[in-house]
Computed example of a mutant assay.
Amino acid sequence: MLELKQVVGAALVDSLAAPTKMLAARRTAPEQFAGMWEFPGGKVEPGESCEEGLHRELREELGVEVLLGAEISGPGPQGWPLNDRAAMRVWLAEVTRGVPAPLEDHDELRWVALDPKELAALDWIPADLPIVSAMLDAAGPH
């Protein structure tokens, strides 16, 4: 089996201890995903651990430092399948420094209540939808 390109993402919540909201990011590209919502993050670079890659991506994309919480375990060893070439590992995370801003790849950030109806109201990238459901379970009762 071919190893998939490793992607990492963050379910940024307002509090790891008692989350009530999550940050969603609206993509500007590629064209088929422009205007759709996703978990911020990106590709892991050679020589980086997944956690190091996620910290770097969040600094570059949002201008924030974070504390990582639990991983939202996916169905495979590389996390959640995105397509036939890539899979994404996702962690709960809380901002420890900075205010999230759409610096790269996004034109809007939105804090959304951890409510299935509110999250379902956003037009998520299809591959992220199962992760949204798993994130709600991982974040605890709401």
Rank of each mutant, 00 (worst) to 15 (best):
V112P: 04
G42Q: 01
L23I: 08
E57F: 00
W124S: 06
M88P: 00
D128C: 12
V13C: 07
A120L: 12
E3Q: 12
V132E: 10
M88L: 09
L136W: 04
L4G: 01
S133H: 12
P19K: 04
A93E: 01
D128G: 02
W80C: 01
A25F: 06
E65P: 06
A34H: 06
L4T: 10
A134Y: 00
C50I: 02
R85M: 13
L92A: 05
A24Q: 00
P130L: 10
Q6P: 12
L92E: 00
E65M: 11
P75G: 13
K117T: 13
H55R: 13
Q32R: 11
Q78V: 12
L68Q: 03
F39A: 03
K43V: 15
L12A: 04
A25Q: 07
A139H: 02
G35L: 11
D84R: 08
M1K: 10
G47C: 08
E94T: 09
E104F: 15
L62P: 02
R110P: 00
L16S: 07
A93K: 01
M135S: 10
S133E: 15
L119Y: 11
L54T: 02
K5P: 01
L16H: 06
P116I: 15
H142E: 06
L122A: 05
L82V: 14
A139P: 03
N83F: 06
E57R: 13
L82T: 08
L2E: 08
G69F: 02
V66W: 00
R27L: 15
E52M: 11
H142N: 10
M88N: 08
A138L: 14
R26E: 09
L16R: 03
A138E: 12
H106M: 14
F33G: 02
K43I: 09
E51Y: 02
Q32W: 09
G79Q: 03
G41I: 05
A29Y: 11
Q78L: 15
A17G: 07
L12Y: 03
R110L: 15
D128P: 03
W111I: 04
G69S: 05
T96L: 09
E94D: 01
A10C: 10
T96N: 00
P126E: 13
P102C: 14
L136M: 14
M88C: 15
G140V: 13
M36C: 11
D115T: 01
P81L: 10
V13W: 04
A18I: 10
A134N: 04
L109D: 05
M36E: 07
F33V: 09
G69H: 00
V90N: 03
D115R: 05
L82D: 06
L62W: 01
R27E: 12
G79C: 13
D14M: 06
L103M: 13
P100K: 05
V132C: 08
K21V: 09
A24V: 07
H142R: 14
E71V: 15
V132L: 07
K5A: 12
G9Y: 04
A18Q: 11
W80I: 03
L54G: 01
Q78T: 14
E71L: 11
F33D: 05
G9T: 06
A86S: 15
F33A: 11
I72R: 01
L114I: 08
W111N: 09
V66P: 04
R85P: 01
M22T: 11
